[in-house]
Amino acid sequence: MSASWLLGLGVTTLRLGVPYIMAALGGTVSERAGVINIALEGLLLLSALAAALGAPHGAAAAALAGLGAGLAAAAVFGLLTVLLRANQVVCGVAMFLLADGLSRFLLKVVYGSTSNSPRLGQLEGHWAPLFVTGALLAGLLLHGLLGATTFGLRLRAVGEHPAAARSLGVPVHRVRLLAVLLSGLLTSVGGIWLVFDQRQFVALMSGGRGFIALAAMIFGGWRPLGAVGAALLFALAEALAVRLQAQGLPLPNYAVQMLPCGLTLVALGLRGAMGTRGSRPPAALGQPLD
């Protein structure tokens, strides 16, 4: 095991970690405001789809389309859950189903295929450093936002005790809506990266990363830096499998695919066995305020 091998592993980890980090951060900001965000998987998929659709007009257009789609999907989700007080879990799952259905539908309509888009040559380039730096920076920024700004203070208060926040004149719905929008923006970066990295769109290409990111968020104790750390751990496991497989270890594809999800289950079980040690969800998580 040489230094260059380890370096390569580190690079792969960071590269694979981007969607986990961004979605876990998106989940963190939303849940700290009290909105359960099962929609992460859907947000990843929709922004990836939009990025692929925008790709023919260049990389910038692809990125903008992805961000716009993430924002729009988050707006719908926020409108339903925050303003209309719809069940957050049902809506999150529905957003996933919508993203899956819509992406397959549009794949068929636009590319005439049910499984994947053609290669998107416009996305050639070395994007990895940009996205990786961006993801790590986003973690730091979110940490600062929550801890050192008035908006962050209000966001935390709204997630813990919305009635108290409202009694002090904090516009609870507006804060929650902004948190969900920010969540959509952050998560969409992960989706955009999936397309930029693979240079094509594949049906269900998020592959459960949105759900795994939820687990990473829980492991991170609903804290941005914790979420980044946990997301990198999941990415490390995936990177290890990918690299070992590439080196000829007889590891079948399905096993590599199964690994992140299986690992998530193991980790959830371990967390239960070890106890939660002070990390607990925001007190008003999942409770709409009327």
């Binding site: 008035t150 209000r154 208060a157 005790h161 009635a163 108290a164 904090v170």
Partner: peptide, 21 residues
């Protein structure tokens, strides 16, 4: 209020200034 309207994880100062920071 009859029941406390305080946000337990926040500090005393944060609870007091919330909304007029």
């Amino acid at each position: 209020h009859q029941h406390f309207m305080l946000v337990p994880p926040l500090t005393v100062a944060e609870n007091v200034i919330l909304g007029q920071e």
